[in-house]
Deep mutational scan, measured.
Amino acid sequence: MATGGRRGAAAAPLLVAVAALLLGAAGHLYPGEVCPGMDIRNNLTRLHELENCSVIEGHLQILLMFKTRPEDFRDLSFPKLIMITDYLLLFRVYGLESLKDLFPNLTVIRGSRLFFNYALVIFEMVHLKELGLYNLMNITRGSVRIEKNNELCYLATIDWSRILDSVEDNYIVLNKDDNEECGDICPGTAKGKTNCPATVINGQFVERCWTHSHCQKVCPTICKSHGCTAEGLCCHSECLGNCSQPDDPTKCVACRNFYLDGRCVETCPPPYYHFQDWRCVNFSFCQDLHHKCKNSRRQGCHQYVIHNNKCIPECPSGYTMNSSNLLCTPCLGPCPKVCHLLEGEKTIDSVTSAQELRGCTVINGSLIINIRGGNNLAAELEANLGLIEEISGYLKIRRSYALVSLSFFRKLRLIRGETLEIGNYSFYALDNQNLRQLWDWSKHNLTITQGKLFFHYNPKLCLSEIHKMEEVSGTKGRQERNDIALKTNGDQASCENELLKFSYIRTSFDKI
């Protein structure tokens, strides 16, 4: 039985969820670079991206490699990797027998973001014989899940209580170790020597080791999670996991709180800001991140802002960003909400898709409305799209047979046209069989910064309504002859009103 693990408890099935942008060198404390989270699957090609990484700022997932063999891993080693800020997950990587050479110096898994409450997941690794993470000293947050690894031993010899604050939620089941077939031998045991430290858990006094050649490092209890030197002297209180010299914040392997210019500090002093819960960055760093993602459509890219001495992905609820200094300031009234469309555009074809934009005031991208039916549609669209004030790209209304009016965009005031449909149009209306009105132009103002209007096959939309939009939106004169079809717009509506004058002759039985 794995020490510190839980057996036999019912657990939810383990679901495996399925960018080499360097964020800056980590400095003297770390020998390499800070790398983003990685999802490495199918083959070993991307694994080489770990070569210079000291910190993975995010998670590391290595999974679904069915053609790899043990010899493929023999020359692979990433000794610079010290810390993973989120979680480490391995799933069905064939041929991998140990992690001792792959990650010989991995010391800390912070667990800032977890995989279903777990910071370390080893699942269905069919050839893994031992973990071998002999320098792993601290899992700051989260638990361990090690399950269905039929060859995995050296679990009962690990004292997880020396690595985690609590072992109650560890789930370590259905491994070879369960069948008591392992016969784990710690260093020196074969020669009758006791080389590794022994600890007591559940009444068992057991030597602690990761492999037959690597003991588990056990520091004096007084050192807590700070770690200790090879001689057993406690590291500085700002260290986490390990250090090369005692009581020196510049000799830590990793930091308990924050890293700044080669030393570990309790908090980031001005003019620095907390970033990702582990390091200090200056304003320029946060500003660069903001600008890199301002026009990016890459998933996970955030326009970072500053709030409460932190550089964070977005302002919290009730705050909006001051564009001059990136500071989050309290909103006066309802907060603006910028919604970034991942692929640059979004099609609204149902109430469900409209709900995804609920509360958005600025759309960074283009909207395509293609709704053919739905219950209580006008009210639903207004509830979900009615706060949109600005669209950076274009607005396209296409084959939306259920629409009679666009009044559900009740606050839309600006279409920038930074991206144009077919390279020309910022407003595009095609084949809307029941569209009769755009907006009530006596109450609604709309500016279209650039781009043209396109109207074709809107049989109940009168040309007068379209011409009014040209005047109000500032697009009059931009359109070419064929942009607004004269014969297919309003051709099934009563669009022309003329005053009919009647004269009559009164007659009676005795007068003409």
Rank of each mutant, 00 (worst) to 15 (best):
H236Q: 04
I163A: 01
E71S: 13
F115S: 08
H291R: 05
V265Y: 05
V144A: 06
Y94F: 08
M38P: 00
E33G: 06
C335F: 04
R162H: 10
A119S: 08
N202A: 04
E231W: 05
N322R: 09
F258W: 07
L120I: 15
I40F: 15
V121D: 00
P313V: 05
C182V: 01
F123S: 02
V305H: 06
H291P: 02
H48Q: 14
V281P: 00
D159L: 02
S54V: 14
H214Y: 08
Q61P: 00
G318F: 11
D178L: 08
K217P: 03
E71H: 15
N322Q: 10
V55Y: 10
T107P: 00
Q204Y: 12
C235W: 01
Q245H: 09
G262T: 13
L106W: 01
C293D: 03
G203E: 14
Q276F: 14
D247P: 02
D159S: 03
I185T: 04
G192M: 07
E57V: 07
R263E: 12
D288P: 02
W210T: 02
G95F: 04
S213D: 15
N175H: 04
Q245V: 13
Y87C: 00
T140E: 04
C235G: 01
F283G: 12
L63I: 04
D261F: 06
D184S: 10
A156G: 14
C255F: 00
L240M: 06
Q61V: 06
C280M: 00
G188F: 04
I40N: 02
T45Q: 03
S143Y: 03
C301Y: 15
P31T: 14
N150Q: 08
T329Q: 13
C53K: 00
S323N: 05
L89N: 01
I158N: 01
I201A: 07
F258R: 07
C301I: 01
C234M: 01
T199R: 03
L133I: 11
G32D: 10
E181T: 02
H48I: 07
H48M: 09
G318P: 05
I139Y: 00
L327V: 15
E97P: 03
C228P: 02
L289F: 02
R263Y: 15
C264E: 00
E180N: 14
V218D: 04
R110D: 02
C209I: 00
F78R: 05
T140L: 08
